[in-house]
Each structure stands twice: as C-alpha cells, then as structure tokens.
Design a protein around this nucleic acid. Structure first.
Length: 478
DNA sequence: ATTGTCTTCGT
DNA sequence: CGAAGACAA
C-alpha cells in the first residue's frame, strides 16, 4: 500500500483538502507540518500571525488525532525536513496545497523537483482559492487590471465542489521523531495576544462556528449592514481563510445553496454582496501573482516621486488611536484589541494615514502586518495600493474619505466609537463624531479635557484635504 | 473598493 | 452593433 506524506501549509483543515483526500485514496497518510521561519520571510513572521498559527495547529493536531493520525511537527528547512521524513518512512509520494506568494512559489518549485530523488510522486493541489489565478486572463491574454472586468469573468467560471473529509483514513503506525507544538517557538512571552482568545477560536471548528453564526445572522442583512461596524454583520472569517481553517470553495457553494433556502429567505442581494467580497480576495491573489512587486512598491511608476512625509510622531499617534478623529481612533483601537478592523473602518483609517497625514502606505501596511490577526499579503497590498491610488485598480486620487462624514454615515449613533473610546462615551451623539465642536460646559460635564483625556484633531480636515490634493497634483502627469 | 464614457474587437 | 475592457474624473 502506498504511503503519502501530506505536507500541511495554509490548508490547516480536513474538509475540502485535496492533498489529504488524494493521499487517503492512495493508502497510508503521514501528515506533516514544518515551521520554516526563514522561508516565510515577509509573509507570516509577525507575532499575531504566529499566534493564530500556533492555535490553529493545536486544533489541526486534535482533529487529526480523532481520525487516528499523528501530526508530525518539524521546524527548519522545508526540503531537509521533508527529505528526512521521506527517508524515515520510505514514503512513496508527497502531496500538498498550492501557495501563491511569489517567493514561496519559487521555493515549492525547487523543493518539488529535488524531492523526486526520494519519492516517485510529488503533487500540488489548488485549495486556497476559488479559481486558478494563472488561468484567468483577458482576451489579450493579459492579467485583468480592473475589478469589475475580473469579477464579470469569474461569474462565467465554475468553482470546484468541495471534497468531504476522507472516511477511509489509514494512519502510519511507526513512531517518528517530531516536536511538540510549543517547541516550534511560535509564541512569544508577550501576553498582548492572550486577549485574542476572547474573540477568536483558530482552527477548523472555530471557523465552522463563525460560518454558522454568520449564516444565522449577518448574511441575511449583509447587503444593508455589512458596512456598519458596530453591528458586525460580517463573516469574521478572514483569518480562518488565511490559514485555510475553512475552504473558500466550501463557503462559496454553501452561500449559493442558501439562495434556495426557503426557511430563511436569504436576500439574493446579500448573498451576491458577500460572494463579491470573496472575489476581491481572488483579485488580490491575481494581482500578487502577476505583479509581485505590489507587496512594497507602487505599481504606478509616478508614485516613486510622491512627496511622502516621514513623521514618526504622527505615525505613532495613528497607530495608538490618538489622532483626535474618533472614528479613526476607534478603528485603530479595535485593531489593537482584537487583531482586526471592520472593513469599512479599515478603508477610512488607511485613507487617513495616506491622505490626511501623507505618510507612506508602506508604513501603514507594515503596522497592519504586525497587528492584524487576519494579515494576508495579497489582500493587504491590494488594499493599501487601492487607498493610496498607486495600484492598477485604484481609488480615485481625489477621493479623500472625510472621516467625520464616514463616521456619521456608518456609525450614526456613535455606538462603535463609544465601544472603543470609552473616554468619549458620555458625549451626546451630536458631538461624538467631532468632539472639538462640543460646547465647553458639555465637555466639563462629561469629564472630557481635549488635549488631555482625548487629543485635539491631529490636523484640520479641510486643510489636510487641500494639502493632499496638492501632493497628488504634483505627481499627476509625471 | 465609483461611475460614466470612450475604444476596441468580434460578429 | 453589442460586449468587454480601459480610462478619466
């Protein structure tokens, strides 16, 4: 009977895992995870990412155990570890899921070739995306540059049906040297992350319960309320998708099946809006694949000339949620506390850094990488370049989010602000979006001292707007 | 994570 | 002529 190593990567699940499924069909399964910090480089080295990974691995180990499988954990050079496992087990094949980060694609390609000296079969399977990104090209055989075009194209493609959890699992019974999860050294002594347990349950089970919750609640109202950060009618699946705790194809088909669910009367528009979000993720990977420099270089050449301000003090105020704009600050504090920001607010805080403070999106991107529990290279790079206007498909350069109007529109009762900025909680809704306009006696009454308990606005909105337009005007035709 | 209009291509 | 994609504002 054939023995297959299943090399787990960003597919930490048993359902819809083609590598696992095919391995099960062939015979004996040897599940392996290797933590190769050196090879991850810019992709997953932040503490938050590792916090998630650590706990997702615990969940995976448990799931595998319940199917009689022991997860072999190793750390170090992927190739060397795989070779050593091959030799120790005399495995016949190695199966794994495709990854799409540029340097990882390279690495995998080299490893796969070299491994053929030891096993007779090395196969990689698509599992993290709905479509095969390299196959989606326009009529000119070029990558898509505009989201709507890309989106229309994907509507003509079909998504593979998800595979079930294999039932005929045969485990490898001989003992193999392996590490305990703690020995991978993913967690630091920094207890900042402990609070994340209040919000997140990494792993397949946690992902399933988020999905269930979402289909019971948020999905019905998605088209109307997904932009209201206080309500959280969003799926909260982003970080599960990063590590493949849940299959995006499974989500796709499950959401589509709900169209016909008569007990719930899911609004078609809500389902469409949600699926559209998944296509944004695809589009991000499409861009990363074809324009790998998107990670830290502007895609539009003229942005090299952009007069970014280097201003550590203002950057730090933005990071801490001390800009004096309540909606922006609420978002940045939500990020620090929970490891995510609601998508609407994410756009506003990003726009604020780039357009109001004229600080390079790269600084913002790095902060997001360090703090987001759902950090995803492709999504993050696309998002920041969209906001900055330096990407291929971009926000109009003159579109400068007004942080006060956004606040009034998407947090009309100030509930989101009050949740994250308790020092402003007593302020009446009329002034919650712009506390500097509150009359002195009201501030006294509510115990707010501007410049002390809560900062003055870091910059006046209309001045910032004019300054940004001038800066963008400079590079417009270069 | 826009919208309206123009260009191009294939019929 | 319509559809798809590019592009300016």
């Amino acid at each position: 009977m054939k023995k297959t190593i299943v090399w787990f990567r960003k597919d930490l699940r048993l359902h819809d895992n083609p590598a696992l499924w095919e391995a099960a069909r062939q015979g004996v399964i040897i599940p392996v995870f290797i933590w190769s910090e050196q090879e991850e480089r810019e992709y997953a080295t932040s503490e938050t990412a590792r916090w998630w990974l650590h706990h997702s691995l615990i969940a995976l180990e448990k799931e595998l155990k319940s199917h009689g499988l022991t997860l072999i954990l190793r750390k170090g050079n992927s190739f060397e570890q795989l070779m050593s496992i091959c030799k120790q087990t005399k495995a016949d094949a190695i199966f794994f899921s495709k990854r799409y980060e540029p340097s990882i694609i390279n690495r995998d390609c080299i490893i796969a070739t070299k491994l053929l000296s030891c096993v007779s079969e090395v196969r990689s399977f698509p599992s993290n995306l709905l479509f095969t990104p390299e196959k989606l090209l326009n009529q000119k055989n070029e990558p898509y540059k505009i989201f709507t075009s890309f989106w229309k194209r994907t509507m003509r493609e079909s998504v593979n049906y998800p595979l079930p959890i294999p039932t005929n699992i045969i485990s490898y019974n001989e003992a193999l040297p392996h590490l305990q999860i703690e020995e991978l050294g993913l967690l630091t002594n920094n207890h900042w992350h402990d609070k994340f347990h209040e919000y997140w349950e990494p792993g397949e089970k946690g992902a399933m319960s988020k999905w269930k919750e979402f289909t019971n609640e948020g999905l019905n109202r998605y088209a109307i309320e997904s932009d209201i950060p206080f309500v959280q009618s969003v799926s909260l699946l982003s970080s599960h998708l990063v590590w493949g705790d849940i299959s995006v194809r499974a989500i796709w088909h499950a959401a589509n099946r709900l169209r016909d669910d008569e007990s719930k009367e899911y609004r078609q528009s809500s389902i469409d809006a949600f699926l559209r979000q998944l296509i944004w993720r695809e589009f991000a990977y499409h861009q990363l694949l074809h324009f790998p420099k998107i990670i830290n270089n502007p895609l539009r050449g003229n942005f090299i000339e952009f007069p970014w301000r280097n201003h550590d003090e203002e950057l730090s105020k933005w990071q801490k949620g001390l800009t004096g704009y309540p909606f922006v600050d609420a978002g940045m504090r939500e990020l620090w506390e929970t490891g995510v920001i609601h998508n609407r607010v994410r756009m506003v805080v990003a726009s604020f850094l780039v357009k109001h403070l004229l600080i390079s999106w790269v600084d913002g991107s790095e902060w997001f990488q360090q703090t987001l529990v759902d950090f995803d290279v492709a999504n993050n790079a696309m998002g920041w370049q969209w906001v900055a206007g330096s990407g291929i498909d971009t926000s109009p350069y003159f579109r400068i989010f007004n942080p006060i109007l956004q606040s009034q529109k998407f947090d009309p009762h100030g509930l989101y602000i009050r949740k994250w900025i308790p020092e402003l909680a007593q302020l009446p809704t009329k002034y919650i979006h712009e506390p500097w306009k509150a009359p002195t006696d009201l501030l006294l009454e509510t115990g707010i001292v501007l410049g002390d308990t809560y900062p003055h606005p870091i910059i006046d909105h209309s001045l910032a707007r004019i300054r940004a337009l001038e800066a963008y005007e400079l590079i417009k035709n270069t």
